[in-house]
Simulated scan of single mutants.
Amino acid sequence: MITEHALLPVVPGREEAFETAFAQAQPIIASMPGFLSLSLSRSVESPGTYLLLVEWDTLEDHTVGFRGSPEYQQWRALLHRFYEPFPVVEHYNLVSSVPQQGHPPAM
């Protein structure tokens, strides 16, 4: 499993429109082969910055499969106009994880 990590700097004042567009774009990525999960979080300290985490079966599911697909063009059309500057995307392998115990999942 690979985790895609992207900090998304949204143009000030466009946050609400970005969140609406992201809701439209989410089913596109979720339908891709190798997609496992996605979370989008908004920074408390910097409300114009969002953290996107996407889990993929393999690196190639993201870099070749998704980015090389016609669906990626739809994703780009919906979202890329909101970023300034364009986000840096990195991929990670899990090294360590501690499961939450005794508490319901945070929302």
Results as ranks from 00 to 15, higher is better:
1 M>K: 02
2 I>S: 00
3 T>D: 12
4 E>S: 02
5 H>I: 14
5 H>F: 10
6 A>H: 13
6 A>N: 11
7 L>A: 08
8 L>W: 10
9 P>C: 05
9 P>N: 12
10 V>I: 15
10 V>N: 01
11 V>C: 14
12 P>K: 04
14 R>D: 01
15 E>N: 09
15 E>R: 02
15 E>M: 12
16 E>F: 02
17 A>R: 10
17 A>F: 06
18 F>Y: 14
18 F>E: 03
18 F>C: 03
19 E>I: 07
19 E>T: 05
19 E>Q: 05
21 A>L: 11
21 A>K: 12
22 F>R: 04
24 Q>Y: 14
27 P>H: 09
28 I>Y: 15
29 I>T: 10
30 A>F: 10
30 A>H: 13
30 A>W: 03
31 S>I: 02
31 S>K: 15
31 S>N: 12
32 M>F: 08
33 P>G: 12
33 P>C: 10
35 F>H: 11
35 F>Q: 08
36 L>I: 09
36 L>A: 13
37 S>I: 09
37 S>P: 07
39 S>M: 04
39 S>T: 11
41 S>Q: 15
41 S>I: 01
41 S>D: 08
42 R>I: 05
43 S>W: 01
43 S>K: 05
44 V>S: 05
44 V>C: 01
44 V>W: 03
45 E>S: 14
45 E>P: 04
45 E>Y: 07
45 E>F: 13
46 S>M: 01
48 G>L: 02
49 T>D: 08
50 Y>V: 05
50 Y>C: 07
50 Y>M: 06
50 Y>R: 07
51 L>Q: 08
51 L>Y: 13
52 L>C: 09
52 L>K: 09
53 L>W: 04
54 V>N: 00
55 E>N: 14
57 D>A: 12
60 E>T: 08
61 D>W: 04
61 D>P: 08
62 H>I: 01
62 H>G: 10
63 T>G: 02
63 T>L: 14
64 V>S: 13
64 V>I: 07
64 V>W: 01
65 G>M: 11
65 G>P: 03
66 F>C: 04
68 G>I: 00
68 G>F: 00
69 S>K: 01
69 S>L: 01
70 P>I: 01
71 E>Q: 14
71 E>L: 12
72 Y>P: 11
73 Q>A: 11
76 R>P: 04
78 L>K: 03
79 L>R: 06
80 H>A: 09
81 R>H: 12
81 R>F: 08
82 F>S: 03
82 F>G: 04
84 E>G: 07
84 E>T: 12
85 P>I: 15
86 F>A: 12
86 F>P: 07
86 F>T: 11
87 P>D: 08
88 V>Y: 14
88 V>D: 13
89 V>G: 04
90 E>H: 06
91 H>N: 08
91 H>L: 08
91 H>G: 00
93 N>Q: 10
93 N>G: 02
94 L>S: 08
95 V>I: 13
96 S>E: 06
96 S>G: 00
96 S>I: 06
96 S>F: 03
97 S>F: 09
97 S>C: 09
97 S>Y: 08
99 P>C: 07
99 P>D: 09
99 P>G: 09
99 P>L: 00
100 Q>Y: 09
100 Q>I: 03
101 Q>I: 15
101 Q>K: 07
103 H>I: 00
105 P>Y: 11
105 P>R: 09
106 A>G: 05
107 M>V: 15
